[in-house]
C-alpha cells in the first residue's frame, strides 16, 4: 500500500472526527493484514471507483459507535439508539469523501458510493485475494476504532 494513500486516509479521519464529533483521535501505526480483521460491532463501508477503486471502511464497537453518534448529534452516548447506524454511515461517507477529494486532486478521478452499515455481534468481512488492504487503528479515549482501505486492481 502506498504511504501517501494511507496518509490521506489518516488525515481525512482526523479532520472528520475533529470537525463533526469534536473528538481528537490518536493515530497508531497502520497494519497491513493478510487475514486480520478487527473485532467490530459496527462496520460502515463506502466504495469508490474510477481511476482508482476500492473501499473505505470504519470499524468500531458498540460503545465507540454510541459515543461518536452522541458527539455528532449533541446527545449523551447513553441516549443513542436508532440514530447510530445512520450516523456511522455518515462518518464513513465524510471520511471517504475527503479521501476521494485528495485522490481527485492527484489526478485520480473517482466517485463514491452511498454508505452501507452492518451492525451485529457475530459476523466477519472477507475480501478477495486480489485486494490490497491496510487498517489504520485510532485510539478514541479508552476505545479503539479502525479505518480500513481496500484497493482493487492496483
Amino acid at each position: 500500500m502506498k504511504d501517501h494513500l494511507i496518509a490521506h486516509l489518516v488525515a481525512a479521519t482526523h479532520e472528520v472526527f475533529e470537525t463533526m464529533a469534536g473528538t481528537t483521535l490518536r493515530s497508531c501505526p497502520p497494519i497491513e493484514p493478510s487475514a486480520f480483521a478487527p473485532m467490530a460491532n459496527v462496520v460502515a463501508t463506502v466504495g469508490f471507483a474510477g481511476g482508482i477503486s476500492g473501499l473505505v471502511t470504519l470499524y468500531s464497537g458498540f460503545a465507540a459507535a454510541r459515543a461518536i453518534t452522541g458527539a455528532m448529534l449533541g446527545m449523551e452516548a447513553a441516549e443513542v439508539n436508532g440514530e447510530m447506524p445512520d450516523a456511522m454511515g455518515e462518518m464513513a461517507n465524510m471520511i471517504a469523501g475527503l479521501f476521494r477529494s485528495k485522490l481527485v486532486a492527484e489526478g485520480l478521478p473517482c466517485d463514491i458510493s452511498i454508505p452501507t452499515v452492518t451492525v451485529g455481534s457475530d459476523f466477519s468481512t472477507r475480501y478477495g485475494s486480489e485486494v490490497t488492504r491496510v487498517l489504520c487503528p485510532f485510539e478514541m479515549g479508552n476505545e479503539e476504532i479502525f479505518v480500513g482501505l481496500a484497493l482493487t486492481g492496483n
Binding site: 463533526m20 455528532m72 448529534l73 449533541g74 440514530e83 445512520d86 450516523a87 454511515g89 455518515e90 461517507n93
Partner: peptide, 12 residues
C-alpha cells in the same frame, strides 16, 4: 436523505 445529517445541519 440522512436523518443524521439533517439533525446536524438543523442543530448548526
Amino acid at each position: 436523505d440522512s436523518s443524521t445529517m439533517r439533525r446536524i445541519i438543523i442543530n448548526t
